[in-house]
Simulated scan of single mutants.
Amino acid sequence: MNKLISILIACIFFVSCESQKSTKIEKTDVPINIMAYYVPREGYMPDQLPLEQLTHIIFSFSKVIDGEMQFRNAESDGILKQLVAQKEKHPQLKVMIACGGWTADGFSDAVFTKESRSKFISSTIDFIEKYQLDGVDIDWEYPAIPAGGTKARPEDKENFTLLMKGLREALDQLDRPQILTFASAGWKRYYKNVELLEVMKYVDYMNVMTYDQAGGATKFATHHTALGHRSLADIEQSPLGVAMTIQNAELPEGEDLWEPQSAEEIIRFCVEKGVDPNQIVIGAAFYGRGWTGVPPEDTGLYQPNTGPISGGTSYSVLLTDFTEEAGYEKHWDPVAKAPFLYNPTDSIFVTYDDTKSIKLKTQYAIENNLGGIMFWQLSSDSKDDSSLLNAIFTEALKK
Results as ranks from 00 to 15, higher is better:
2 N>P: 06
4 L>R: 14
9 I>Q: 04
12 I>K: 02
13 F>Q: 06
14 F>Y: 10
17 C>A: 14
22 S>L: 14
28 T>N: 15
31 P>R: 09
31 P>K: 07
32 I>S: 04
36 A>K: 01
38 Y>L: 10
45 M>W: 15
48 Q>K: 13
49 L>K: 02
51 L>R: 12
57 I>A: 08
58 I>S: 14
62 S>C: 10
63 K>V: 06
65 I>G: 01
72 R>D: 09
73 N>T: 00
75 E>P: 00
80 L>V: 04
81 K>C: 00
86 Q>S: 08
89 K>W: 10
93 L>P: 01
96 M>R: 10
97 I>H: 12
102 W>N: 10
103 T>N: 12
107 F>A: 11
108 S>C: 06
113 T>C: 11
116 S>L: 05
118 S>K: 15
122 S>V: 04
123 S>D: 03
123 S>A: 03
124 T>V: 13
133 L>A: 02
133 L>P: 06
135 G>H: 04
144 A>H: 15
146 P>A: 14
163 L>Y: 03
163 L>P: 05
164 M>D: 05
164 M>R: 05
165 K>H: 15
167 L>E: 13
169 E>S: 13
170 A>W: 06
172 D>W: 05
172 D>R: 06
173 Q>W: 04
178 Q>F: 04
181 T>K: 01
186 G>Q: 04
187 W>N: 07
188 K>V: 11
190 Y>P: 02
194 V>P: 03
194 V>E: 02
195 E>L: 15
196 L>R: 05
198 E>T: 09
198 E>G: 01
200 M>H: 10
201 K>E: 14
202 Y>C: 09
203 V>R: 09
204 D>N: 15
209 M>T: 06
209 M>G: 03
210 T>N: 07
222 T>P: 02
227 L>C: 12
228 G>C: 08
228 G>S: 11
230 R>D: 07
233 A>N: 12
237 Q>K: 15
240 L>E: 13
242 V>S: 00
243 A>W: 13
243 A>P: 08
243 A>C: 09
246 I>F: 13
250 E>I: 00
251 L>S: 03
254 G>T: 08
254 G>I: 02
258 W>Q: 11
260 P>Q: 11
266 I>T: 08
266 I>A: 08
269 F>R: 08
272 E>A: 14
275 V>D: 03
284 A>P: 02
284 A>M: 10
288 G>K: 02
290 G>M: 00
292 T>H: 12
298 D>K: 15
307 G>P: 01
311 G>N: 07
315 Y>N: 11
315 Y>W: 08
320 T>G: 05
324 E>N: 09
326 A>I: 00
327 G>E: 10
331 H>A: 00
334 P>E: 14
335 V>Q: 14
341 L>P: 04
343 N>D: 12
345 T>M: 06
347 S>M: 12
348 I>S: 04
349 F>Q: 03
352 Y>R: 05
360 L>D: 13
361 K>W: 03
363 Q>D: 15
369 N>E: 10
370 L>V: 01
373 I>R: 01
373 I>N: 03
379 S>N: 09
380 S>A: 13
380 S>K: 06
382 S>C: 10
383 K>S: 00
385 D>G: 08
386 S>R: 07
387 S>E: 04
389 L>Q: 02
390 N>H: 13
392 I>P: 00
395 E>H: 03
